[in-house]
Design a protein around this nucleic acid. Structure first.
Length: 152
DNA sequence: GCCAACGTTGGC
DNA sequence: GCCAACGTTGGC
């Protein structure tokens, strides 16, 4: 019996927004160049639920839901010289970066803004409210995730 | 292995 | 634009 895990993944809406995902249906969560964030993706399982977070915008916050539908995909952008995520140190025989595929589930009825999240949760409960937390992929405690889901 | 310098993220 | 909080890089 596998338990569902919950995650939060950030994207700047100018780069890729919840509406882009709604339009695309599914997308590769590529371009992650941080080992900790990559390792979180390696811990994901199919069926995991992901909160989509818009960062670097007004206001930042949780804007929707998605589901992990495919795992352990080699990130194609690391070998693409025209990509801003090109990594000359990565070798096709031993790729450094991989990613997951996610599917659109829903938009939040109303954005759960960071100020609201800070009122509702402590930084121990929800890592994204922690000041200075730069990681773009974070685990979400399942008890906290269930409270969040009621608000989405 | 240490550490200073530098780069990045992202809220404010 | 500022800055906190890290991560990365490279000299030694």
């Amino acid at each position: 019996m596998t338990e569902i895990n919950y995650w939060l993944m950030k994207s700047e809406p100018d780069a890729y927004s919840i509406d882009s995902l709604k339009n695309d249906g599914v997308t590769l969560w590529d371009g992650i160049r941080n080992y900790q964030a990559r390792n979180f993706m390696r811990n994901m399982e199919k069926g995991d639920i992901v909160f989509f977070y818009h960062s670097n915008c007004k206001p930042p916050g949780i804007v929707g839901l998605m589901e992990v539908v495919d795992l352990n995909i080699v990130d194609p952008t690391q070998f693409d010289k025209n990509s801003k995520y090109y990594d000359p140190k990565s070798n096709p025989d031993n790729p450094k970066w991989d990613c997951v595929k996610v599917k659109y589930i829903a938009n939040s009825k109303k954005i759960l803004s960071l100020p609201e999240l800070k009122i509702l949760f402590s930084e121990d409960e929800l890592l994204v409210v922690k000041k200075g937390n730069r990681l773009s992929i974070l685990p979400v405690r399942s008890d906290i995730a269930k409270l969040l889901l009621e608000k989405i």
